[in-house]
């Protein structure tokens, strides 16, 4: 009995909902801190910092495990949420002719499934915008940057370089006659001999996506900002709700958790929303 009850019972489904939801909340913090580099570090330094971070996030084995956990959580949370919603609709097949739920519950609490579905649409779009491009598209520029030529190094002025990840390898002059880019690495042309890893210039892609120099940039900004508003409403109820689902309801702690949840629901989506807005204004 317990074997199935831990997966199938109404309460167990809420445990899974809460655990995946809270895991996604911690994901949001990490994702936010990484992405704030886009607006808080300027110029070449910011570009480098962000691309290095993106490289780290896609190559570090521990991060890879975390990112798979995140994908699984999103899927599980969405599927579980869908099952719950279908069952809940079945449990109340006939609506009241007149219903006045306003005084008894908050609006976000009653629209979690709608809000969640909108978030899912956002996640799919967001991944198509950036993640898919990085993983599968060949169109992404590699991060090369110009080094001020110093006489002693005999480097011609204005020469482009690959900025490489391996410390022992110096910046490599970009010479398309002898080198070739495959994925995140540079090879000797027509060989399998890898010279170095080099960064995908995700920073540039992001700037081009949201910048006002892109005629569609404003639509991207609007969509992302509105999606963050949706996320804010989802978290407004969701954060504290998850603790209740996990059985945490305490005279002393619950008021603190509720306030923490509301703070989280405002601050995290607000900071996320600032990123496309500031990029739009500055690019």
């Amino acid at each position: 009995m317990s074997n199935s009850s831990i997966l199938k019972s109404s309460i167990a489904k809420k445990y899974w909902m809460a655990l995946t939801g809270l895991f996604l909340c911690t994901f949001l913090i990490g994702h936010l801190l990484g992405n704030l580099q886009l607006i808080f570090i300027d110029g070449e330094e910011g570009r480098r910092a962000f691309n290095e971070y993106a490289y780290f996030m896609t190559h570090n084995p521990a991060i890879k495990i975390l990112s798979y956990l995140t994908y699984i959580s999103i899927l599980f949370h969405a599927v579980d949420g869908f099952i719950l919603t279908v069952q809940n609709k079945k449990a109340r097949p006939v609506n009241y002719a007149v219903n006045n739920p306003g005084p008894t519950s908050s609006t976000p609490a009653r629209y979690m499934a709608v809000l969640g579905t909108l978030i899912l649409v956002f996640i799919a779009t967001h991944m198509a915008n950036f993640w898919w491009k990085v993983k599968f598209s060949q169109e992404i520029p590699l991060h090369t940057y110009k080094i001020e030529s110093k006489q002693e190094m005999n480097i011609p002025k204005g020469q482009s370089f690959y900025y490489t990840q391996v410390p022992s390898i110096q910046p490599i002059p970009k010479d398309t006659n002898t080198l070739e880019e495959k994925g995140t690495a540079i090879y000797y042309k027509n060989t399998n001999i890898k010279i170095a890893d080099c960064y995908i210039d995700l920073h540039k892609v992001v700037m081009a996506f949201f910048g006002k120099s892109n005629p569609n940039g404003i639509f991207g900004v609007l969509f992302y900002v509105l999606s963050m508003l949706v996320l804010a409403f989802h978290l407004w109820h969701g954060f504290a709700s998850a603790f209740q689902s996990l059985g945490v309801n305490h005279a002393k702690w619950t008021p603190i958790i509720k306030n923490l949840g509301k703070g989280f629901a405002i601050i995290v989506p607000l900071l996320f929303a600032l990123i496309p807005i500031l990029i739009y204004l500055n690019n």
């Binding site: 109404s10 719950l84 809940n88 449990a91 739920p101 008894t104």
Partner: peptide, 11 residues
């Protein structure tokens, strides 16, 4: 019995 799940709306 076919009762729904809890969404913690608090109603």
């Amino acid at each position: 019995e076919g009762f729904g799940n809890c969404s913690n709306t608090g109603a």
